[in-house]
């Protein structure tokens, strides 16, 4: 099953956190930053699977290799779209390649809902983001993988807000001067 779905941007700021088990807020944050650390250093050619972050690696060592499956999260899959990282943490009952497709469906669904989705859309409509995920995964179990059904399911819950007009593309807000959000964090 899927243990958690995370979305954060290039600077490690969370945009969506969904843990399918109850976890202390502080532990959640630590996990996010550990995964971000892992993912931020990945080169271009690298595969989309992460080694387990230290928090999870410790717990997985005790698992018995006798059974083919167990409850321990053993797979961290990610995809990187523009400014955002999409992360799925799962146990061995999920197929790694299928999870990659699942993330793709998720992003496509968001794109269908927002029309050319970008990080801003997700920041301002994080409820919709959750709703979309809720149409695909319930309690860690994938319940829908078909794009149109996911989109329909979200739309049935009410109209999806567009991004605020004055935040439009190439909009007036100009906080520019930072590339990629790199150097910013070092000073903080």
């Amino acid at each position: 099953m899927i243990n958690a779905v995370l979305v954060f941007n290039n600077a490690g700021q969370p945009r969506l956190t969904k843990f399918y088990t109850q976890l202390e807020t502080s532990v959640q944050q630590r996990l996010i930053s550990e995964i971000f650390t892992l993912v931020a250093n990945r080169p271009n050619s690298a595969c989309n699977f992460l080694p387990l972050p230290p928090l999870l690696a410790n717990s997985s060592k005790s698992s018995t290799p006798t059974t083919p499956h167990n409850d321990t999260p053993s797979l961290v899959t990610y995809r990187h779209y523009a400014t955002l990282y999409f992360i799925v943490i799962s146990t061995s009952t999920e197929s790694p390649l299928a999870l990659l497709d699942l993330i793709q469906v998720f992003v496509q669904a968001l794109d269908g809902l927002f029309e050319n989705v970008c990080e801003l859309d997700l920041i301002f409509n994080f409820e919709t983001l959750h709703a979309t995920l809720g149409e695909m995964i319930v309690g860690g179990v994938v319940v829908e993988t078909q794009l149109d059904k996911v989109v329909d399911g979200v739309k049935a819950q009410g109209t999806v807000a567009k991004r605020p007009v004055n935040e439009g593309k190439g909009g007036g807000l100009n906080f520019g001067g930072f590339g990629r959000g790199d150097g910013v964090w070092t000073g903080r």
Binding site: Q13, S33, S45, F175, G176, G179, G181
Partner: peptide
Amino acid sequence: VRNTGVVPYAEEDDSDAEESLQPHEQRS
């Protein structure tokens, strides 16, 4: 990140955040 913890700070690069997620995965 470990040292500072994550703070929802100002979105300093809007142009980035507006980049469409669609085209392709992007990797450093």
